[in-house]
Computed example of a mutant assay.
Amino acid sequence: MAGADVRGTVAEGYEPVRDAFVRNLTERGETGAAVAVQRDGRPVVDLWAGTTDPEHPHTAPEWTQDTVVMLRSATKGLTAAVPHLLHQRGQLDLDAPVGHYWPEFKAAGKERVLVRHLLSHRAGLPALDTPLTPEQASDGATAPAALARQAPAWQPGTAHGYHPHTYGWLLAEVIRRATGRTAARFLAREIAEPLGLDLWLGLPDAARHRAARLAPVPAPEAARGGDLRIRPKRSLAEAYGDPESLTNRAFSAITPPPDENAPDYRAAGHPAAGGFGTARSLARFYSALLGRLPDAPRLFTPATLTQARSQESYGPDRVLVVTTRFGLGYMLHGPASPMLSAGSFGHPGRGGSLAFADPESGAAFAYTTNGMRKSVTSDPRAQALVRAVRECL
């Protein structure tokens, strides 16, 4: 996008982030996006630019400071906060068997699956034996029932593999069984509304006019090859292209692929990938996890913050086929998803988005985009911004 018209503000000393954002638009094929950075709860970067519809850039409205977009798997960081807060309040034991809250789940050898296994991608349930239609995936009942019947792909707790879709269905059902509330309702009432955040599991009707449309966009030659910086013997592309692989089956748990711009799908609020929000609100959310907001109470106690970002899974990922690091619900800084430092925790979204917190620097970062790339964990556009933030810090 030549001659990008970037709007927003940067604090003194953070100009390199604006420069990187401009280059994303002019050199890296960015279509519509926003980036926000907070330091100790204070906004230091708040930028946006581009179109709300990559397929119709000349007729669609421009991206504004209030544009929201589907976050894909960056949603997982929002959903993960719910069980941590419930644990903090004594309403959920992360070391309890899932079957304690969800008796039907004990079937097929899953009696010893713990709640923490769901959060750390160690449950052995990354794929469904029979994929769901988009309608079944959205009804709130079919997916949990299928997972309750299913046997794990490996002995739970002994290995890890990214659960792209099932992560959300599993956690949401545990939350519902433990509290009688949906994850979406808890997020809205206990987190988003008190903090004044434009963040939702499922796009509300009142915000539909503000939502950007997603579309696949090609990566310019100079930006290709930026995903997953470890080159395993078998590439992710090869694994994804094999219909019998665990990788392909995990990402194809919803078949045929849903239309992510369809109103019904947007409203469904898939707890693993169907969140909506602004970059500004995502950054404020992570600042709240750190307890750095001057105008709001902290979400996580120091003990909960340590719990969330302590390494639970590290090594070869049975789904992403590279080395990954996970805490409880959050991806951790590492070669597969570089953040700011070894202590950073958050979550990328397939296609480009990324949000995380860095306790050591007090920084919270969020990048959202509607131009979907094939990247799963490490998009070159997001990484250019992360490097610029690191330079400023």
Rank of each mutant, 00 (worst) to 15 (best):
E12C: 03
D19N: 09
D19F: 06
V22Y: 06
L25K: 00
R28Y: 14
A36W: 07
V45W: 09
G50Y: 12
T52Q: 15
D53C: 04
P54T: 06
T64V: 04
V69Y: 05
R72H: 14
R72L: 14
L78T: 06
L85W: 05
H87E: 13
G90P: 11
L92Y: 05
H100P: 00
E104D: 15
E104I: 02
F105I: 02
A107T: 08
K110G: 11
H117A: 07
R122I: 02
G124Y: 02
L125T: 03
T130E: 14
P134I: 07
Q136M: 08
S138F: 01
D139H: 07
G140K: 01
T142F: 04
P144H: 01
A151R: 13
A153R: 12
Q155C: 03
Y167L: 08
I175C: 06
T182Q: 06
L187M: 11
I191A: 02
E193A: 14
G196K: 09
L197P: 12
D198Q: 13
L199I: 14
L199F: 09
L201N: 08
G202D: 00
L203K: 13
D205F: 10
A207F: 08
A211V: 14
E221C: 00
A222H: 06
A222K: 10
I230K: 03
R234P: 01
A237Y: 08
E238L: 13
D242H: 12
A253P: 10
P258N: 05
R266N: 06
A268R: 04
P271C: 10
G277Y: 10
T278P: 11
S281W: 09
L289G: 03
L290Q: 15
R292W: 00
P294Y: 02
P294C: 04
L305F: 11
R309M: 13
P316E: 03
L320D: 04
L320T: 06
V321R: 14
R325D: 06
F326Y: 15
L328T: 06
G334M: 10
A336W: 07
G349M: 05
A355I: 05
F356D: 02
G362S: 06
A364F: 12
T368R: 05
N370M: 11
A384K: 02
